[in-house]
C-alpha cells in the first residue's frame, strides 16, 4: 500500500490527464464538426445558388438579381434549340442503355457461373473506361472513329456512350448477384428446371430491380456525357450537355440556371428511383 501523500499525487495526476483528454476530445469533435459543416456548406451553396438564380427575372446575369420571377423558364420553354438538344441526348442515351444492358447482364452471369480463366480479370477490365483519364481516352477514340468513319455520326455517339454507360450496369448487377444465394438456382434445378430456366425464372427475375437501377445510372451517365461529345460529335451533333457547355463557354446566359435546376430535379428523381430499386432488390 502506497503512502497517503503518494496516492493523492497519483490521483491528482490521473485527474489532470482525464481533464486533458476530455478537453482534447471536445476539441477533436468541435474541429471535425466545423470542417464538415463548412465542407457541406461549400458543396450545397453552388447548387443552391443555381436554383435561386433560376428565379431571377433579369434579362442579363446579375448577382444578386434585381427582380424575381419565372422569366428564365419561359425563355427555356419557348426556344426550340434546347428541345432539339434534349431530344438528341435521349436518342443517344436510350439505345446506349439498351446496348449496355445486353452487354453487361449476360457477362455478369458468365463471370459468376463459369470457371472460365481470367473471368475476374475481365470483370475488372470492365471498369477501365471509368478510370482512364477521359480527355486522353477521348483522343484515343477520336483516332479510332476517324479510322472507322464514325466521327460526328449518330452511331458513333451511341457506341461512345455505351462504352461509358455499361460499367454502371455491370457494377450494380454484379453486386446484386453476389447477394442472391446460388442455392436458389440449385433448388430450382433439383425441382426440375433446366439451367436456363433457373437463370431466367429465379436469378434474372431477382436481379431485375438491380438491372433497372443500373440502367437508370447508365442513362444518367449517357445523358450527362460532355467530354466525348466535344471530341467525337463534330459541329452537327449537339446534345444537351454540349449545348450547355457551348453556352457557358461563350458567356453566362441566365437561361442555363433554369435548365440546370430542371436537370438537377430530373437527375435527383432518377437517382432516388435507382436507390429505391437497389433497396428492393436486396
Amino acid at each position: 500500500m502506497a503512502p497517503l501523500h503518494d496516492r493523492n499525487a497519483v490521483t491528482a495526476d490521473r485527474n489532470r490527464r482525464e481533464r486533458m483528454r476530455h478537453l482534447s476530445d471536445r476539441a477533436t469533435r468541435l474541429g471535425g464538426g466545423t470542417v464538415v459543416t463548412i465542407a457541406a456548406l461549400l458543396l450545397l451553396i453552388p447548387a443552391a445558388l443555381v436554383v435561386a438564380l433560376s428565379f431571377s427575372n433579369d434579362k442579363y446575369f446579375n448577382f444578386p438579381p434585381r427582380s424575381w420571377g419565372t422569366r428564365q423558364y419561359h425563355t427555356l420553354f419557348t426556344s426550340p434549340q434546347w428541345g432539339d438538344a434534349i431530344w438528341l441526348s435521349v436518342k443517344i442515351a436510350v439505345p446506349a442503355v439498351v446496348l449496355s444492358t445486353l452487354i453487361a447482364v449476360p457477362a455478369v452471369f458468365a463471370i459468376n457461373r463459369s470457371r472460365l480463366p481470367l473471368r475476374h480479370a475481365l470483370q475488372a477490365a470492365g471498369v477501365t473506361s471509368l478510370i482512364v483519364p477521359l480527355s486522353a481516352y477521348a483522343v484515343a477514340m477520336y483516332g479510332v472513329f476517324v479510322q472507322l468513319h464514325l466521327l460526328a455520326t449518330y452511331l458513333g455517339l451511341v457506341i461512345a456512350n455505351t462504352v461509358l454507360a455499361f460499367p454502371m450496369i455491370l457494377v450494380v448487377t454484379t453486386a446484386a448477384m453476389s447477394r442472391i444465394p446460388v442455392e436458389l438456382e440449385l433448388a430450382a434445378m433439383t425441382a426440375g428446371a433446366s439451367r436456363l430456366r433457373a437463370w431466367a425464372g429465379i436469378t434474372l427475375r431477382l436481379l431485375i430491380p438491380a438491372i433497372l437501377a443500373g440502367a437508370v445510372l447508365a442513362f444518367i451517365t449517357s445523358f450527362d456525357e460532355a467530354v466525348f461529345i466535344n471530341f467525337l460529335g463534330g459541329p452537327g451533333q449537339v446534345t444537351l450537355p454540349k449545348a450547355v457547355f457551348d453556352s457557358v463557354r461563350f458567356g453566362v446566359d441566365p437561361v442555363i440556371t433554369a435548365i440546370a435546376t430542371l436537370l438537377m430535379l430530373f437527375t435527383s428523381v432518377l437517382m432516388l428511383i435507382a436507390l429505391r430499386l437497389r433497396r428492393t432488390g436486396q
Binding site: 458543396l43 453552388p46 447548387a47 445558388l49 443555381v50 448577382f63 450547355v244 457557358v248 438537377m264 435527383s268
Partner: peptide, 21 residues
C-alpha cells in the same frame, strides 16, 4: 444532400455553378 447535390447537377452544370459562385 450536400454530397449528392454536385452529383445531381451533372458535369457541365456543376462547373456553371462554380462559375456563378
Amino acid at each position: 444532400l450536400a454530397v449528392l447535390a454536385p452529383f445531381w447537377m451533372g458535369t457541365v452544370v456543376k462547373n456553371y455553378a462554380i462559375i456563378l459562385f
